[in-house]
Design a protein around this nucleic acid. Structure first.
Lengths: 174, 174
DNA sequence: TCCTTAACGAAACCGTCGGTAGCGTAAATG
DNA sequence: CATTTACGCTACCGACGGTTTCGTTAAGGA
């Protein structure tokens, strides 16, 4: 799609809808017949490239959880759509409907899958029973947004494993 | 300042400069004589309320690190400026100059202080010597942006302690 | 008292850009 | 052949960040 090309060249904020139309060989009105806003158009384009982030489950919840995190960070780091996703954050902060869509499509599905894995890991005694699943998810998923936005550098694919290990093992010396 | 009031009422994206001027009983031109852009104006307003986030050091690096994190989350959760900061963070994705300013004023000072504390903790054998300080900071600071942006809910002040404990202790059952 | 300078207010204006309206046209569909 | 559907085109709107111009007030110094 032309949207993804422009996204790669200019990034989300500099992506002009007129330019998308021109590049796609299409009238701007046609775009607005298909999508209600710029944000939703980009959302669709991103979803099309990211696809679903399903992983094959091995039965070892901790292993699967690590894989899920790795795949997620990998797509964020290595696809145009993934690198554009944090910039969409600006748009969703000002549009409640778009924010809802964003979370429904990109955030919640991942968290639900992670939540199930964490629950199973606790049941099997692999994780302490007093860990708060949400807290754990926040800690391992946080850098995916924090790094590009607050630091200006993407979270490299390898950092998924590293942050997972850190949180799971802990940092204290004993 | 009028900027903070508007920020509290409407949030960053809906904050109109004309409105700030009207509320402050001042001409819009006066605002642009003092600040080069909306972003920098808000940056100043936020900095004025957040103040410096210094803590008194006790000599126990882990304790000080926790306090630093708690104070940070506290201000993010309990001040107008703090709650507006994530939206401003989203905005900086489209303005490299503003992003630099944002990081120079809000991100880097905190990370430098945290980095020093982590280094001291490692030296004193309180943390494993193989922990990556940046990784640790990403894990504990990540939720401060991830939660408001990706989840739409602020990181409560209490979560600072919780995420700190999680990362420091680890989640694995053994 | 006069002159200069600095700061401000008022209001009109500009450019960009997301989003619309209106209208004509070409291809399916029956 | 009539109708529907989808599209292209052009002109337009409105919001809003930011600028320009000009007139006014008020220090402050000689």
């Amino acid at each position: 799609m032309a949207t993804l090309d422009l996204l790669a060249e200019a990034g989300y904020p500099a992506l002009r809808i007129d330019e998308v139309a021109r590049r796609a060989g299409v009238a701007k009105t046609t775009i607005y017949r298909r999508w209600p806003s710029k944000g939703e158009m980009v959302l669709d384009a991103i979803a099309a490239q990211l696809g679903d982030r399903s992983i094959e489950e091995t039965g070892d919840p901790l292993h699967d959880l690590r894989r899920l995190l790795e795949v997620t960070y990998e797509r964020l780091a290595e696809t145009v759509a993934g690198r554009a996703l944090p910039a969409l954050a600006a748009e969703i902060m000002g549009d409640a409907g778009l924010a809802e869509e964003y979370r429904r499509r990109f955030v919640h599905p991942l968290r639900e899958r992670a939540r199930a894995l964490i629950g199973r890991a606790i049941d099997q005694g692999l994780l302490r029973s007093d860990v708060d699943p949400d807290l754990l998810m926040d800690a391992v998923a946080g850098p995916s947004l924090y790094r590009p936005i607050a630091l200006g550098v993407p979270a490299p694919a390898g950092s998924a494993s590293a942050v997972f290990d850190l949180v799971i093992h802990g940092a204290r010396n004993h």
